[in-house]
Write a protein that binds this DNA or RNA. Structure first.
Lengths: 360, 360
DNA sequence: CTGAAAGCGCTAACAC
DNA sequence: GTGTTAGCGCTTTCAG
């Protein structure tokens, strides 16, 4: 049963036994005494083999250490049933979506192929890898899809974008009703007596534009147009910290700040606390994403929640509709977020309290 | 040359034109008027084709939108030159390593196949996927490698473990000299006059054991055995927060705390700040990993740095040595960490100051 | 229920 | 320089 090629082959593999060839379906078939095609059938759970044969096939496979070869399957199969995922690992919310994609894909009989976008590899290259692996659809998360990618044309893969930077034609989009989320945040703050509510935005990052607009609209609707105050940011902690320092330097703090996302809120919170500004007594802070960060006991951030599991499920559904159900029209799927109220927001400082009093 | 199946086929693909077959090498060859093998040669950058032919091949490929099929390459090639990566996305330091693996692998002519371990997919299943894709080696990051995996035997893939939970025979390990790192932290604190130095450990997490031991050893070496104080933790923010609350409840704070990792340190820091305990005036805090977290301006954590890029490079090197250079003996690669001093550590409170004074 | 045969798109070894 | 040939390990179709 052992590898008969013997030792000492000068194949550059050193002195250990020559690497035994990995067993194939034919090896399993030979061992059981059936045809290779039948083994294939058994492994695919197709009808056409007796219960006893199945048992013997599995046992032989086990004994041989057989493992189906994905490359061969992929090559021969009509459909790959693979979904490519383009993501970055830097935004915590994106990580949650990636995790949620696994069960969603499996539920529909698809497999995931992950491809991280890091600085050194551009989206184009990552896409190429995914397409080379015959992915039938690509799901991008929070990235700006390069719409002029050569593969985008007719016959190319379906593209589903989760929280894209800009919407491209010919793709499905799963996004959050950002304005709705921000509106809930503003409503909540106004109900607590806040009027001077600032916003630290996300600059050119995904959804930042909508959030900024939503903030402005909500403020106006409450008659607080005069209090509109947008600070530049980019969804990072440091941008929140910078905004906090600006605010502190200016000596007049708003009573509440809505951050572009949780990381930014974290920067605001941390910087305020370091400066002796109490949250929420002096300033209320609202985040966005309801990430793990927001839930930490010592951060305890009121935040706008986007359900990662639902976004993942909807994205997979969208791909399945195109792939298996013949849909061709673009879909725009908008998910409603909900505000999760935690300890970082509270009643506004009484208007009568002099602002200067605040930096004790 | 076009798909002659025409429109209106009731193949469940809706009314759009029938999905055009993806072009193959033969299509490119036909268009140029050369053999398919020659096209293959051109794409592999092998000698044997004239400059003019190369140009025409690339042009035809471009026009056709041709893209090499990875499955077919993988199937036919002798070597896959693929490295599988098993990782979790929950530890920031691990994310840094994954990112650093891309350039390291490319440098040695290898491609990465990522596989995230999330709650719903166990390591075994993730491994199987990687092996099905013909990965020649598996690099695991911060996970406990299941040593009884059936593929582990002779002829299986090489395994390289980065910061594993426990070391398994038959694998290469890239790890940090944890004791060294902790010793540097203790030395630094002692030099600043600290004596009551506590440690919040990482429980059963990777490397936690070594760090705990290193802490005890370093304390003893400084004659501070009486001050040894280990609090249970698990590398999460909440475990740091819990330790901080315990410490506060006990009414007597050490002058410094060495956390099991940065996330834990973050929990300590945040909880202390919330409670009005100043860092580093009242308590110094040291983290571990020197993650992005540690570098944030409002966290500014003294931390033990493990170089992610070096760990990644060494891991790939280890795989390459086995795969391309015939090494068969196990390697244990130990990387020396360095302490990065930032603002979370400072001189110890003067011993004369009554402890009770501390919670102002 | 089982088997034989024909490839999927490409690479590698060889002939021209 | 270029073309020919023979598969890689599997799925799929068609005959028993």
């Amino acid at each position: 049963m052992g590898d008969p090629r013997g030792t000492g082959r000068s194949d550059g593999r050193g002195t250990s036994a020559a690497r035994p060839k990995r067993p194939t379906m034919s090896d399993v078939a030979a061992r059981v005494g059936v045809s290779q095609a039948l083994v294939s059938l058994v492994f695919r759970n197709q009808p056409g083999a007796s219960a006893d044969t199945r048992r013997r096939v599995f046992q032989a496979a086990e004994e041989l250490g057989y493992r189906p070869d994905t490359a061969a399957q992929l090559l021969r199969r009509t459909r790959s049933r693979q979904l490519g995922v383009l993501f970055t690992m830097r935004q915590p919310h994106d990580v949650g979506i990636v995790e949620a994609l696994y069960p969603a894909a499996r539920k529909h009989g698809y497999t995931l192929v992950l491809n991280a976008m890091v600085d050194t590899r551009d989206e184009r290259q990552a896409m190429d890898e995914l397409l080379g692996l015959r992915c039938e659809a690509i799901i991008t998360i929070g990235t700006t899809f390069e719409r002029h990618h050569p593969a985008t044309g007719v016959g190319g893969p379906s593209i589903v974008e989760i929280n894209p930077l800009t919407r491209a034609a010919g793709t499905d989009v799963v996004r959050t009703a950002e304005r709705n989320g921000i509106r809930q945040a503003v409503d909540h703050l106004v109900a607590q007596g806040h009027r001077a509510i600032a916003h630290v935005d996300g600059g050119a990052m995904p959804a930042a534009d909508e959030r900024r607009r939503g903030y402005r609209a909500a403020m106006r609707r409450h008659g607080l147009a005069d209090h509109i105050q947008v600070h530049p940011g980019d969804y990072t902690e440091e941008s929140g910290a910078r905004a906090a320092r600006d605010l502190l330097a200016r000596g007049e703090l708003p009573t509440a700040v809505i951050a572009g996302n949780d990381r930014c809120a974290h920067g605001l919170l941390g910087t305020f606390l370091r400066a002796g500004v109490h949250v929420p007594e002096d300033v209320s802070i609202v985040g966005y994403d309801d990430s793990q960060l927001a839930r930490l006991s010592f951060i305890d951030l009121t935040s706008v929640r986007q359900d990662a599991a639902e976004a993942a499920e909807r994205a997979v559904r969208a791909a399945v509709e195109r792939l298996d159900e013949g849909r061709t029209a673009d879909r725009d799927i908008v998910l409603d977020p909900t505000l999760v109220v935690r300890g970082s927001t509270g009643p506004a400082r009484t208007p009568s309290a002099p602002d200067g009093d605040l930096l004790r």
